[in-house]
Amino acid sequence: MIETAAAGSAPADAPVLVLVDHHDAGVRAPVLELLTVARGLGVVHAVWFGDGVEGALEQLGAYGVATVHQVTVGDGTAPLPPSAAEALAEVLVASGATTVLVSSTFENKEVAARLALVADAGLVVDASGVEREADGRVVTVQQAFASTWTVRAEVRAGRAVVALKANAAPAEPVEAPRTPHVLRHEVTLASDHGVRVVERTPRAASDRPELGEAQVVVVGGRGTEGDFSVVEELADALGGAVGATRVATDEGWIGHEAQIGQTGVTISPRLYIGAGVSGAVHHRGGMQASGTIVAVNNDPEAPIFEIADLGIVGDLFTVLPQATAEIRRLAAER
């Protein structure tokens, strides 16, 4: 257990730690949103696990990062959540930060929880917004019950760990980019927490944006009867990702990683288009926070029409290709 910070005692200049998710191609998109939000909370310190930070410094500086904590845990491989949390707790203490932001993936939520446990911090996951009040308290916004309720909560502890959903805020670079200062931390863990990775297979890279991060998602459901071609074509015309309902993934029409819903990927893109999606409650729980919802279904009674901004009763195999062709034609004109 690390020393407890008193409630509301955060100095205004206390750093905000942002965990940087990265892969071979660099910083993941939601991190830039986190950095943008973090600038409203304090001086931004980024935490980078592993090697390769040099190639990202310019981008991190462009988003206002003052300091980068480059952390090597054990042999340098990507740590599992218990180890990552332990390492992050060390950085938290070393930096004097009182607030930590991570993007709300399953792994990061576990990191956040275990970090908050040892740091006596308040924890909010799947937040859609976070602010610091004038008196220093951290206040968050979340969507609850399949996004039918909005909840504002305050952190009562002296430290706050917040997992922010992708697309919670637009990513904006700063006007005057900085050159981040790099601090290196070598963390030796007392144990491996009794678990090891036997095998890890990164998901094959797709030309389309990542589902959880995409601004536009086109989703196919039972109504596609397994033919996702028109869904994919519309997604590509819009530069979007392709998602699916539980029925579609269970049928094997598309991989389980494409499943949107409470137990799959939760999305909140600017634009959601559901094709042949009925809108079962489990699915709605994963997409109801979307900006604009468009639904195409041949059943006028489909529940998704109750939440669709634009509902089209029609055959997706004629409506989607027509829309795709029109969107491509308009794009060519521009």
Binding site: L271, D309, V313, Q322, E326
Partner: peptide, 19 residues
């Protein structure tokens, strides 16, 4: 301002126009 339309042959065009 939710809109529900039934395809009369031009719903794809209307979808594009809405976007």
């Amino acid at each position: 301002d939710r809109v529900l339309i039934t395809d009369d042959g031009d719903a794809g065009l209307r979808l594009a126009a809405y976007l």
